[in-house]
Design a protein around this nucleic acid. Structure first.
Length: 588
DNA sequence: TTTAGGG
DNA sequence: CCCTAAA
């Protein structure tokens, strides 16, 4: 699922797509929908609404380059409440900042909303309200900033945000006239009118765009010609050239088949991520900026530190000296589908304003294995996918894809502070291990005893998402491992894991096997392993008591014997354990 | 899915 | 720890 996508990719959610020809209806009603592969429009789920609703408020949608595009892409229209043309209203967000001086319009919008509200889940309304507030704050704070940022994040941008355009104070007197004719106005004047109309500045210099936007804002209609009209009493009135007016009107509201519309809509939606490049030109002929290639995104994602990726991304951005790069990366709070808040950031990926999970670029833990699973079927926009996919919602390993290996290798070595904390924690925990009674360690150890140990490692139970990067083995765990081997036999790792490590969810059978291998190695290499009484400690990281190593060795020998005589008898090792224990060290 | 083993 | 082959 994506914010914007290619039609071929199956289902995508296009923000602000409307149903059918609502273009012709007034007041404007829009709905967030998902575009299925066959071109049909399906109402967005609440999750999607929540995830994408804020995008509709982005100031950047104001700066779209093409008048023609706008006429068909209603999401760019300032009338900002999105409802369904049918009866299933979805609570969606509005950009109040645009509307703050247009209370009348707001009233209309409420009217449009109310009739349908009751049949909707109240929760969605709450969330929608929250989203609205949230985005409103953001927008108010960033309205002008966003615009400038957008304008500067494209290399080919032609109009740096010089403040010579308009003042920041809206001049509402511009709108108080009975008749407003935009045709004779200069760009600057149009920008002032724009400011008065929408309450925010623009540096767009496309006259027709400005005129149309203003007209749409003032008339609450998308039936706006490009020129030769005046605005009288909030209505479009054709000037002398009535014919052309009709013509323009026809052009802008021409009806299309849903499929055709969808195609255009999807295509046009790409502008959302781009900028009003070359507004002066005819927008239909202006070239778009190239989307980042798969390779490019991959490389970006591989950068270990965020600054690095930001710096790289900024290479694609015309640097406006005084503007810190940081301004392009802002954190937002999002409401996830599970109700939990997760962080995202607005990141300019090669000039594209995309939202990615806050930690997705610089993964602190092992990278998601199926990261590239998105790639085969999409040649673009997979970054948005990352945004949608809650971490670990799908954790099916796709190990076959070899390409991911290198990336994983690169990413997985990122130092993890939290992990280090965990290590310290576990080391501290290991100090209390010796207090453990033998009985606890041997018998009760399976379930009950360890339940308190269980989550002391600060790994949330529910999310096995955060896969371990490195977790030091505690003495307790080692003991359990040795116990498990003694009881069930070396090699029966899954069984040991199941029975002795039930509470250590993060230890897999492979981990046990690896650890046992290491223990074995250590025990064999240990110089004073013969002297069991001696507790000469290896200066190594986590000193394993000699006694344990001794026992490991004995178990190994025993296992070798048992392996030769009766490899399949799993009850035999028990007697071996007793032998070992009897022989053994005083550590238990 | 588990185990064994290389890296 | 990760990855993979083999069972």
């Amino acid at each position: 699922m994506e914010v914007v996508g290619q039609e071929e990719n199956g289902e995508h959610v296009n923000k602000g797509s409307e149903l059918g020809k609502s273009c012709a209806s007034d007041p404007l009603i829009y709905q967030l929908v998902r575009v299925e592969g066959d071109g049909t429009l399906v109402p967005a789920t609440e999750d999607e609404v929540m995830q994408f609703g804020h995008l509709l408020d982005d100031g950047k949608v104001e700066d779209l380059p093409s008048v023609e595009d706008i006429s068909k892409v209603e999401s760019f229209i300032p009338a900002n409440v999105l409802c369904t043309g049918k009866s299933d209203l979805k609570g969606l967000s509005q950009s109040e900042n645009i509307m703050k001086d247009k209370q009348k319009l707001e009233t209309n919008l409420e009217d449009a909303n109310n009739p349908n509200k009751p049949d909707k889940n109240p929760a969605s309304q709450d969330i929608s309200a929250e989203t609205t507030q949230n985005s409103t704050v953001v927008n108010n704070a960033q309205a002008s900033e966003t615009e400038k940022t957008d304008a500067t994040s494209t290399p080919a941008i032609d109009n740096p945000p010089d403040m010579t355009t308009v003042g920041s104070k809206p001049n509402f007197s511009l709108l108080t006239k009975d008749e407003i004719c935009l045709d004779g106005l200069s760009i600057r004047e149009l920008q002032e009118v724009f400011l008065a109309t929408f309450g925010r500045q623009t540096n767009v210099k496309d006259k027709s765009w400005l005129k149309r936007r203003i007209a749409m804002g003032l008339t609450k209609s998308c039936k706006v010609p490009t020129s030769n009209f005046i605005i009288k009493d909030k209505q479009i009135v054709p000037k002398e050239g009535g014919a052309q007016y009709e013509e323009n009107l026809q052009e802008s509201c021409e009806t299309e088949s849903p499929q055709e519309f969808t195609r255009k809509r999807v295509r046009n939606a790409n502008w959302n991520f781009e900028n009003p490049v070359s507004l002066e030109e005819d927008s239909s002929t202006s070239k778009r900026m190239r989307k980042p290639t798969k390779r490019y995104i991959e490389e970006l994602s591989s950068l270990d530190n965020r600054e690095e990726s930001m710096r790289l991304a900024s290479l694609f951005v015309r640097n406006n000296h005084d503007r810190p790069v940081r301004s392009r990366v802002s954190q937002n709070r999002e409401i996830g589908s599970n109700g939990a808040a997760f962080r995202t950031r607005n990141d300019s990926l090669g000039g594209f304003q995309v939202q990615v999970p806050f930690a997705s670029r610089a993964r602190r833990c092992r990278p998601r294995k199926n990261l590239v699973a998105f790639m085969p079927h999409t040649d673009s926009l997979l970054v948005e996918d990352e945004n949608i996919m809650q971490e670990g919602q799908t954790e099916k390993p796709t190990r076959k894809i070899r390409a991911s290996t290198h990336k994983n290798r690169q990413l997985k070595d990122i130092p993890d502070k939290q992990e280090k904390e965990n290590q310290e924690e576990t080391v501290a925990e290991s100090d209390e291990v010796p207090e453990m009674s033998p009985d606890e360690a041997q018998s009760g150890g399976e379930n009950a005893h360890d339940s308190n140990h269980d989550e002391c490692e600060s790994v949330p139970k529910g999310s096995h998402v955060r896969r371990k990067h490195h977790r030091a083995w505690t003495l307790c765990e080692v003991l359990k491992l040795v116990e498990g081997v003694a009881r069930y036999g070396a090699g029966r790792w899954s069984e040991i894991r199941r029975l002795s490590f039930a509470s250590y969810s993060y230890r897999t059978s492979v981990d046990l096997k690896d650890k046992w291998r290491n223990l074995l190695k250590a025990s064999m290499a240990h110089p004073s392993v013969e002297r069991e009484g001696k507790h000469t400690r290896k200066p190594a990281s986590l000193p394993i008591p000699t006694s344990i190593l001794l026992r490991v060795r004995e178990l190994a020998e025993l296992h070798a014997q048992a392996g030769s005589e009766s490899p399949t008898n799993k009850s035999t090792p028990v007697h071996g354990r007793k032998v070992v224990q009897g022989k053994g060290s005083g550590f238990l």
